[in-house]
Design a protein around this nucleic acid. Structure first.
Lengths: 335, 335
DNA sequence: ATGAAAGCGCTAACAG
DNA sequence: CTGTTAGCGCTTTCAT
C-alpha cells in the first residue's frame, strides 16, 4: 500500500539523523559529499518521495493555486484552463479547479474551500449570478492573492486579466459600418455583466463615431442559442429595418445566422453577422463566422504570471496590475 | 494576512485544552453541552477554519481526488470534467486536474505529482502517445485506487468507465445499411487506440452481419479535420464508389461533409455521413450531424461513483468493475 | 467530562 | 559536518 518511506526510515536504515537526511536531500552545503551521495543513492533506490502534505504544513505554503471558473464546458473557459494548467505545471505548482456553475453560493463555497486548502493564490472568473461580493472582500482582507480574469469584480482591487471588450465591440461595429451598414442590431448580454456592458458600449461608441443614430429598439437582450429561438419572431420583425447584426457571442451569432437563412435571408448578402469569441464552432459553420478573436489560452497564462509575480515576491508590495488583451477581428465570411 | 486562528488559540482564549476544543468541534459525546456550545460559538464568531493540511497529514488522507486528462479543450473531456467536478464537489472532495497533453512523459509526471500529493484516488483517461504502462503499473502496485475512463489501459486491472465503442460503431454502420447503403467508407482512428479499434470492429461486425463484403481500401486512417484536408484527393477518389461514410468522430465527419459539399456532392442525398461523439458542433452545422451520442457528463459522474465506492469501503475488497455506457444514435439530417 | 502527551513527515534553529 | 529539539495544526489514546 502507498509509498510509506519517510526520511525517518532512511535515517534509521543508514544510521544517521533525520536532519542529515533532510539536508542531504536538498543539497545543503554543510553535508559532506560522501554522506550526501550515500543518502541520495539510497533514497533513489528506495524510490523515496517527500510527503508534500507535511512539507506544506511545515512551510505554510501549499504550492497549489486555485481556480474558480463558471463553466468548464465552454470553449473560452477551457482554453483559459489549458493555459493556466500549462504554466502552473511548468512552474511546479498544482492546480485545484472548482466550477461555480454560474451560481453565487457555490462560488462562495468554492472560494472558502480553496482558502481552507491554503492555496497560495486564486484565479477567478466571476459567476454570472454573483451580485454580492462579500466573499471576495473577505478573501481580499485575508490577504490571499487573487487575480480575476474576463469576468472581473470591480468591487475590489486585484490583478486583472481582461479582454478589451469595449474595443472589441467598437471594432466589430466599425467593421460592419465600413462594410456600408448603418442599421445594426445588437444582440446583447444581460446588463449586469460588465463584459456584456462593455461590448455594448463599444457598439454605441462606434455608432457615435460615425454619426449613426442610436436606436434603443436595436439593442436586444439575447445571448444564447435558446434565446434566439425564443425571440425569433421579435428579431424577424426587426430584420426588414436592419442590414447587420452584432451578436455578443459566437453561438448567438450562429443561431441567428441559421434562423435568418431558414427564413430566406442570405448572410452576408442581405444581413451581415458578426460574433464575438472565436471558438471552434466559428470555422465549422457555413458561412464561416467573422468574429472577434478572444485569446483564452494566453489570458490564462498571463493570469498565472501575474499571480506568480506576487507569490515570488511576497514582501515587495506590487501595484495591482490590469493586463488588457486587445482583440482583433477574425475576418471570415459572415460579415 | 490569512486566517491564522488555530484550535490552540481557541483553547488558550477559552482556558481549556486543545483536545477539548477538537472534540467539541466535532461533536464528541464526551464533552458537556455547555463547553460544546461555548467553544462552538466562539469558533463561529472568530470564523475558525480547520487547517486542511494538518488534517490530511494526521489522517493520511487528503480528501482530494486527482484527474489526468489528455486535453481540457475538447468537448467530450470537458463534459467529463464537469461531471466529475459536480459529484466530487457534492461529496466534499477536492479535485486536482492535470493535463497530459497527449504526452506520455507528462502523463507519468502528473501521476507522480498526484501520488506525491497523497490524493485518495485517481481518475484517468490515457494519453494517445502512451505505449509504456510502467507508471500505471507502479501506481497500481502502490495500491492507489484508480479508475480509467474512455481511454482505458488494458495492461492493468482497474475500475473502468467506457462507452461501448464497438456497439457504437456497429450501430452507426447498421444505421447506414438500413438506409440502403452498402459501400461504406470508414474514416478511422490510429490503430493503437483501443477506442478507435473498437469503433472500427463494430463497423466490420455490422458489415458481416449484413453480408456486405469488407474492403480494406474503405478503411482510412483519418481522424482530424486537418487530415481530411490532407487526404482530400484520396477520399474524393473513393467517393464515386461509395454511398456513405462513417467517421470516427464528429469533427472529422463535419470536415468531410464540408469537403464533399464544396466538391458538388449533396449530403445526405448523394452520400450519407455519420459521426461519433455528439459534441456542440453537431447541431450547429448544416446539415445537422447524425451521430453517435457519447455521455461525457454521466461517464464522469460514474467514474467518481466507482472511486468513492472504493474509498468509502477501504477494507472491503471489491471486484474491479467496468461500467459500459451503451450509445444511441442521435438522428439528425446528415444520414 | 477534560487534559497531557505522542505523533503524522518534514524543516530549521541551535548545539556541539 | 552532524545531531537534538521544537514545532507546523490537528487527532487520539491514555490518564485522571
Amino acid at each position: 500500500m502507498h509509498n510509506k518511506l519517510t526520511i525517518k526510515d532512511i535515517a534509521k536504515k543508514l544510521g544517521v539523523s533525520v536532519s542529515t537526511v533532510s539536508r542531504a536531500l536538498k543539497d545543503h552545503p554543510d553535508i559532506s559529499e560522501k554522506t550526501k551521495s550515500l543518502i541520495r543513492n539510497f533514497a533513489n533506490e528506495m524510490n523515496y518521495r517527500p510527503n508534500v502534505l507535511a512539507l506544506s504544513l511545515r512551510k505554510q505554503k501549499s504550492n497549489t493555486i486555485g481556480l474558480i471558473i463558471p463553466e468548464i464546458v465552454h470553449h473560452f473557459f477551457s482554453s483559459v484552463i489549458s493555459g493556466i494548467e500549462d504554466l502552473t505545471y511548468r512552474e511546479g505548482y498544482n492546480l485545484i479547479i472548482c466550477q461555480s456553475n454560474e451560481n453565487q453560493f457555490r462560488e462562495s463555497t468554492n472560494l472558502q474551500a480553496l482558502i481552507d486548502h491554503r492555496v497560495d493564490g486564486i484565479i477567478i472568473s466571476m459567476s454570472k449570478s454573483t451580485t454580492n461580493f462579500n466573499h471576495f472582500k473577505k478573501a481580499w482582507e485575508d490577504g490571499i492573492p487573487m487575480v480575476f480574469f474576463d469576468r472581473i469584480c470591480d468591487a475590489i482591487e486585484t490583478d486583472r486579466v481582461v479582454m478589451d471588450d469595449f474595443e472589441g465591440g467598437r471594432l466589430a461595429t466599425e467593421y460592419l459600418i465600413k462594410k456600408g451598414c448603418s442599421n445594426i442590431l445588437h444582440l446583447a448580454a444581460a446588463p449586469n455583466l460588465l463584459i456584456g456592458r462593455n461590448r455594448r458600449d463599444g457598439y454605441l461608441e462606434a455608432l457615435r463615431q460615425y454619426n449613426i443614430p442610436i436606436r434603443e429598439k436595436f439593442i436586444l437582450k439575447c445571448d444564447t442559442r435558446e434565446e434566439v429561438i425564443t425571440m425569433q419572431n421579435h428579431i424577424l420583425s426587426l430584420v426588414p429595418q436592419i442590414d447587420a447584426i452584432f451578436a455578443v457571442n459566437d453561438s448567438t451569432a450562429i443561431a441567428t445566422i441559421q434562423m435568418l437563412r431558414r427564413n430566406g435571408y442570405r448572410v452576408p448578402e442581405d444581413i451581415r453577422v458578426i460574433g464575438f469569441g472565436d471558438g471552434p464552432i466559428a470555422t465549422i459553420v457555413e458561412p464561416a463566422l467573422t468574429t472577434v478573436e478572444q485569446k483564452g489560452y494566453d489570458m490564462g497564462r498571463e493570469a498565472v504570471r501575474l499571480l506568480l509575480q506576487r507569490l515570488n515576491n511576497p514582501n515587495v508590495p506590487i501595484d495591482y496590475q490590469t493586463r488588457v488583451f486587445t482583440p482583433t477581428i477574425k475576418e471570415r465570411e459572415s460579415a
